[in-house]
């Protein structure tokens, strides 16, 4: 039981990272029905941006006291801004022209973008994993039999807070309303005076900025980053978004946590489970898409013709 509870914590903190990436996936899919395959790589890019900022600030280890808040704020905001702008740039250069093309064209482009980003990062920071300063102290909290690191709490809390903030933004603001309208019917929204290009760019800005934040958090949490991280993390985050119901903000978070839990539990309870986690997660992806393509919280929508 103690082990089970500990694995629950492990799963939730791993899932928190997936959830943060999944939010961006789901937003973009919700509005232009594009599987933005490059999203996982924007997340990795976020960790490299954050690393560059930290290096610039001269941070190489843990930071204490008020300086910690300053360092974290500056780094997170810079990583979010850079990733957000990268996202907007990708949309402008690669996806906008293909908005009315056959559906597979932008998906193929997105895969291409993903390969380009990975290689740019490889050229920038080399092919081996790069170590990342731990920045935030990680005191272990003992809750009865289970140990929770401060960073694990940070990951989980950030995912939940971001999800609520995003919900508020989309359902309580004018811009959010414009996004929902664009998602529902792009042509009608345009007729109502909504600037479609700006709205879609905004979606990419927010989604990619979230990936940037996730990149910083994962860098601090794991203490390392690697140009190829985004491929697998992105794929699992996409699985999370699909599991929760793609296009659904709360679903993305739920899916992220569930995928994290599935991984942790598979590791613990399948004999030699560590080597089977990817097979298990991708089997979940396949099964969900086949048996419940709308996901846990999504509504079943007929395909637009």
């Amino acid at each position: 039981m103690d082990v089970f509870l500990q694995q629950l914590v492990n799963g939730l903190s791993l899932g928190g990272i997936y959830a943060l990436i999944a939010l961006g996936y789901t937003m973009v899919y919700g509005i232009i029905e594009l599987i933005n395959f490059a999203h996982g790589d924007v997340y990795t890019l976020g960790s490299f941006f954050a690393l560059a900022v930290l290096t610039g600030l001269g941070v190489s280890g843990e930071v204490h006291g008020p300086a910690l808040i300053g360092v974290v704020l500056v780094t997170v905001l810079a990583a979010m801004l850079c990733c957000g702008l990268t996202g907007v740039l990708i949309e402008r250069l690669a996806y906008r022209r293909l908005r009315n093309a056959p559906r597979l064209a932008p998906l193929i482009t997105a895969i291409g973008m993903s390969f380009i980003l990975e290689n740019v990062m490889q050229l920038w920071r080399g092919p081996s994993p790069v170590s990342f300063p731990s920045v935030i102290p990680n005191p272990i909290v003992h809750l009865g039999p289970i140990d929770i690191g401060a960073k694990q709490i940070l990951v989980i809390v950030t995912a939940v807070v971001m999800m609520f903030a995003l919900q508020l933004f989309i359902y309580r603001t004018r811009l959010g309303k414009a996004m929902r309208a664009t998602a529902q019917d792009r042509d009608a929204a345009q007729l109502m005076g909504i600037d479609i290009n700006t709205t879609i760019a905004l979606t990419f800005l927010i989604g990619s900025a979230l990936a940037g934040a996730a990149g910083f958090i994962s860098g601090v949490y794991y203490g390392t980053t690697w140009f190829f991280n985004g491929f697998e993390a992105g794929l699992k985050a996409f699985t999370a978004a699909v599991l929760g119901g793609i296009g659904n903000i709360a679903g993305a978070m739920l899916g992220g946590f569930l995928i994290g839990l599935i991984e942790a539990m598979a590791t613990q309870y399948i004999p030699q489970g560590a080597q089977w986690t990817n097979v298990v997660v991708f089997s979940v992806l396949v099964l969900v898409l086949i048996f419940r393509p709308s996901g846990l919280l999504g509504e079943s929508l007929p395909e637009k013709v």
Partner: peptide, 16 residues
């Protein structure tokens, strides 16, 4: 499955 979902399922198989 429709086009893009199909693509992702095949990707999943490709990993498995």
């Amino acid at each position: 499955l429709r086009g893009d979902y199909l693509a992702i399922v095949t990707l999943g198989f490709g990993e498995i």
